[in-house]
Amino acid sequence: MIKVERLAKTFGTTKAVNGISFGVNTGENLVLLGTSGCGKTTTLKMLNRLVEPDSGTITINGKNIVHQPRELLRRDIGYVLQNNGLFPHYTVAENIAIVPNLLKWDKARTQRRINELLEKLHLSKEHLNVYPNELSGGQQQRVGLARALAADPPLLLMDEPFGALDNVTRSKIHADFLALDELKRKTIIMVTHDVNEAFELADRVALMDNGQIEQIGTPAELLFNPVNDFVKDFLKSQQLQLEFSTIRLDDIWEHLPDSGKKINSSLLAGRLSVWEALEHFKFYQKETINILNQQNKEVKSISFDQLMNAFSQYKTLQPHE
């Protein structure tokens, strides 16, 4: 859907973005990860022409974006900011309706869309006529996301969207983000400096440094096949935690023994991470948990030790081991 070629931007003597190239598939969530000043936000802003590149090309659905009027380009791109960017003198309903109003939707259609998004994002209709400063940080961010989604754009750009939230609120919104059908139909490019957030939400991660992409790939590829010392060192301090959250039960399925009596409890889906399975042990303190392989419908009942053994066996088969 998106193709970026040799993109460059200089501010004064600083090369903010230094000739990067990458592509993003339709329906993919690509996260631009890196420390402050690495060029990730500048890259994001060039995609909707908030910043104009010095050189290089960006095409969206085969069309060069410089050949389109900015205002028309942006109507097909949702944009979510770290501090939500809501207009303080507009109510929640007025904020969400901004793009539909620009597109001259009728009032009934706009209201249906607002109500639909409120329900999907777990906001009450009582919030419609309040102002942003009357909402919590998490509620404001949900309204900002609703505004970006209001006209159902195919592409969503998110610049540190959860960076201003406390850890508990951020964790809840992450879960909602992954579960929201509305977002599963979007192509998303997100900027973050939070490694755990990137690995939790991304289909692929582009790790940037000094205006360049050091490596782009799935979270597992960055963890187990780092292309250089920068990538390895960047992830080193959180390596084990990232492995727990990146490796899925499906990944280690062949290493899980089928033993133990199956307990009467809900099944854990194989798409869950090892970390989520460990939390189930932690919170429910069961001797075994049941895991469902959704492809062959097989169920295995495993203990904590068996889960950890399978995790270790999987890791030993990875190239970096």
Rank of each mutant, 00 (worst) to 15 (best):
V80I: 09
L81C: 07
N83V: 05
G85N: 06
G85K: 08
F87M: 11
F87I: 07
H89L: 03
H89G: 12
Y90N: 11
Y90G: 10
T91Y: 02
V92R: 00
V92K: 03
E94T: 05
E94L: 05
E94I: 02
E94V: 04
N95E: 04
N95H: 04
A97S: 15
I98F: 14
I98T: 13
V99Q: 01
V99L: 01
N101R: 13
L102I: 12
L102S: 05
L103E: 03
K104F: 14
K104P: 11
W105F: 03
W105I: 08
D106E: 11
K107V: 06
K107M: 04
A108V: 12
Q111K: 14
R112C: 13
R112T: 13
I114L: 04
I114T: 00
E116L: 14
E116P: 11
L118I: 08
K120L: 15
K120W: 15
L123V: 10
S124E: 10
E126F: 13
H127V: 05
V130L: 02
Y131E: 01
P132Q: 04
P132V: 08
N133H: 15
N133Q: 15
N133V: 14
E134H: 12
E134T: 12
G138D: 02
G138Y: 00
G138L: 04
G138I: 02
G138R: 06
G138A: 11
Q139W: 13
Q139P: 07
Q140F: 02
Q140V: 00
Q141T: 00
R142H: 11
G144P: 02
L145R: 02
L145N: 06
L145F: 04
A146N: 01
R147Y: 01
A148W: 10
A148K: 09
L149C: 08
L149W: 04
A151R: 10
P153K: 00
P153W: 05
P153N: 03
P153L: 07
P154T: 07
L155K: 00
L157V: 01
L157Y: 06
D159F: 00
D159P: 00
E160H: 09
E160N: 03
E160S: 07
P161A: 02
G163F: 01
L165N: 06
L165E: 11
L165I: 09
N167A: 14
R170G: 10
S171P: 05
K172P: 13
I173T: 09
I173G: 06
H174N: 12
H174R: 00
A175L: 14
A175R: 15
D176K: 13
D176M: 15
F177Q: 08
F177V: 01
F177D: 09
A179Y: 10
D181E: 12
L183P: 02
K184I: 02
K184G: 09
K186V: 04
